[in-house]
């Protein structure tokens, strides 16, 4: 699963190869080195290194006062991060699994997202929530969800989903530089994937999608791991002369309207692929955005969405695989759309 960065992104010719997890760790280390107010908080992120080893060894470099193991108290821990952000620190709070953020919805949605507004701009909450997300690990219904759309519904939050190691690093650094609360959904299956990562500090712009593959017959919008599946499907379709444009939806909130509408005007067909439950999801927002714009006039086929089945994520590996979009289902949907068999 090696994705070459799009040439429009910052990229050294001699860039090193790091894993997605290593890239996130490097971003945290760079930020902590540069800014003493950056602290890490989360469950088992210290000596244990985090459930996915993302914070491995950071406690040795920065000490337990800056790499803080919290009790298993998601509401309290996240709220402490919110309060600390309100008063001068820049906490990076790791939810062990993004599913556990449901225990902290109060602090994320009622507090972090709204404090600036409720206080008329007199306060800021520069907190970063790291959200290990997604299915494919056999962890079943409470450890496999993709709930990014939930937070896309909340004014005041910014919601990102990096698909490459380069973006995983650049987005975390951008999130830390941002004065508002940012949630970064990191797909668990991507942690070990590798890619080129520039040295030093750089910021991946928040709110910008990226055309990862250009094409003229069909636009696929997909982020996180679905980007990789969409690109693989696009390669297969190319052998049959179907040229797919693939947009990496790097940011859910704010969403990059221009990049999506420009592509749809060009191709006239849109397939949105996401791992969250299909109903009321990211695809609904993007479909409506296109339908409400002038790009609607360029469509020559209905808009299609591929999302997760209308069920909790199942345990059985075949069921689990079948419950979310895969390369073959994306390919099949694209073929139907190109043939207008929808």
């Amino acid at each position: 699963m090696n994705v070459q960065s799009n040439p429009v992104t910052a990229s050294d010719t001699n860039a090193r190869v790091l894993s997605y997890a290593e890239a996130i760790r490097e971003a945290m280390a760079i930020a902590m080195q540069a800014d003493p107010t950056v602290i890490l908080m989360g469950e088992d992120i210290g000596v244990y290194g985090g459930a996915f080893q993302v914070t491995l060894d950071l406690i040795d470099r920065f000490g337990p006062e800056r790499v803080m193991d919290t009790p298993i108290s998601e509401l309290g821990g996240a709220g402490v991060a919110v309060g600390a952000a309100l008063t001068g620190l820049k906490p990076i709070f790791e939810f062990q699994f993004s599913d556990f953020a449901m225990l902290a919805m109060e602090q994320i949605v009622n507090q972090a997202a709204k404090l600036r507004y409720m206080l008329g701009g007199e306060a800021a909450v520069p907190v970063v929530f790291r959200m290990p997300s997604g299915s494919g690990t056999g962890a079943a219904a409470q450890h496999s969800q993709s709930i990014e759309a939930w937070f896309g519904h909340v004014p005041g939050l910014k919601v990102l989903q990096p698909s490459t190691p380069e973006d995983a690093k650049g987005m975390l650094l951008a999130a830390l530089a941002d004065p508002d609360p940012v949630m970064i959904f990191e797909h668990k299956l991507l942690y070990k994937t590798k890619g080129h990562v520039p040295e030093g500090s750089y910021l991946t712009p928040i709110g910008k999608a990226l055309v990862r593959r250009t094409g003229s017959d069909l636009t696929i919008v997909a982020g996180s791991i679905m980007l990789h599946r969409a690109l693989e499907a696009a390669e297969k379709l190319a052998t049959d002369g179907i040229n797919v444009e693939v947009i990496d939806l790097r940011s859910i909130r704010p969403i990059d309207r221009d990049t999506i509408l420009t592509s749809v005007r060009k191709t006239g067909k849109l397939l949105v692929v996401y791992e969250g439950v299909k109903a009321y999801g990211v695809g609904a927002e993007i479909s409506a955005m296109v339908a409400e714009s002038d790009a609607f006039d360029y469509l020559d086929a209905p808009i299609l969405r591929l999302g997760a089945a209308d069920a909790p994520v199942p345990y059985n590996p075949d069921l689990e695989r079948a419950s979310v979009p895969q390369v073959d289902t994306i390919e099949a949907a694209a073929r139907r759309l190109v043939r207008r068999e929808v």
Partner: peptide
Amino acid sequence: GGLPIAVGAALSAKR
């Protein structure tokens, strides 16, 4: 709602 936030403010002061 304010309880964890207060603890966070106290953490800031200490750090």
